[in-house]
Design a protein around this nucleic acid. Structure first.
Lengths: 193, 193
DNA sequence: TCGATTACATTCACTAGTCGGTATACTTCC
DNA sequence: GGAAGTATACCGACTAGTGAATGTAATCGA
């Protein structure tokens, strides 16, 4: 039984996560991550074989929590399917107003590593988005929406459009506009009541 | 009398444009740009005060042509407003299938320069997206669509969502899905025929 | 004893930006 | 018309610093 204040590896990923997310991957040195984690670079390299390895670990660690957050927002919302989808955007918009918000780490990583399409971190990003989409598809199918696959893709597109646009112009209200578009599309796919 | 093969400054911006777009800003050194332009770094620094200056010039040079391309696709399309909007996405999808395609330079720059929100290049990016949105808004208003402002924003969101998603997963068909969503939204905003 | 960790030096490639100087052409003044 | 000055455009070599990654020897704790 390990009381484990917190495993070193985990602490490193945590430090990397904060720094990479807030300053970008290329903008953060391995030294900086080691310092933030409170240990030596040498120790960091004991746990990770390279910076790329660390980058991959950073995104691996964000996959599950990010999806869970979306699911919580959806599940906790009252009302119909359109309201539940709108709730995701509403909550995302609220997050985007915090000064520390810097868009979607997965999308930003794809932008930064644009010349290494096979990078493990990119694959993690693709898998994450696929999981979000698959979850939405299932929710839509269960609710009896027509064209659940296409609808799920469209919602993902609006979500990521919101991430991208607001990262650029810093006007979080665009995310709410995306939410309205999403609601319109959901309602159009719902059986007439 | 100067036949002017092509002004040096222009050649530099052209070289920077190609390199920055295909490999990312942080991934390209000033030396690399100079070499691509066929001159010395010293000369490059004669025409530009800094790399940041060069980055700004790169995006300045993309603003007008990018918008013009969208407008051409829209204008040349046959059919109603929904068909014309769909045409933008269809053409964009076609572009995205070329191996050199790397998403939207403006959005990617925002992702790379996430820790310098006031950077001139970011401002250029914001202005560019505003211009696209304003153009769409006017087209929609002229066509008598209700809520032209919101609709224009929603189309921009789908456009940028397509850029972001396809940059990550490299599946250009998402852009066509975005086009279908856009068409649905446009039709919903059009007066009943 | 052994896995984890540290201090610290080191390698090597690369990066933004600068120094000092040259070649050419246009202007100005006598 | 010619000398002197001035602006433009250019370059080779350099500085000073940062990057990822490694080497090594010593230490800590179970």
């Amino acid at each position: 039984m390990k009381t484990a204040a917190k495993p070193t590896r985990e602490r490193i990923v945590e430090a990397a996560s904060k720094l990479f997310y807030s300053e970008g991957i290329r903008g953060v040195s391995v030294d900086a991550v080691a310092e933030k984690a409170g240990l030596t670079k040498r120790t960091l390299y004991y746990h990770f074989t390279s910076k790329d390895d660390l980058i991959a670990a950073y995104l691996d660690g964000r996959d599950q929590p990010n999806l869970a957050l979306f699911q919580r927002w959806f599940d906790e919302a009252e009302g119909g399917l359109d309201d539940k989808v709108t709730a995701i955007f509403r909550n995302l918009g609220k997050s985007a107003r915090h000064p520390k918000w810097k868009g979607c780490g997965f999308l930003r990583t794809a932008a930064e590593l644009v010349d290494m399409p096979g990078h493990p971190a990119i694959k993690t990003g693709i898998a994450h988005k696929k999981r979000v989409e698959a979850w939405l598809r299932q929710e839509f199918a269960e609710a009896g929406a027509t064209g659940a696959e296409a609808l799920a893709r469209q919602i993902v597109l609006l979500l990521d459009g919101g991430f991208a646009v607001v990262l650029l112009n810093r006007d979080a209200s665009y995310i709410e506009t995306a939410g309205e578009a999403a609601a319109t599309l959901v309602r159009a796919a719902l059986p007439v009541r």
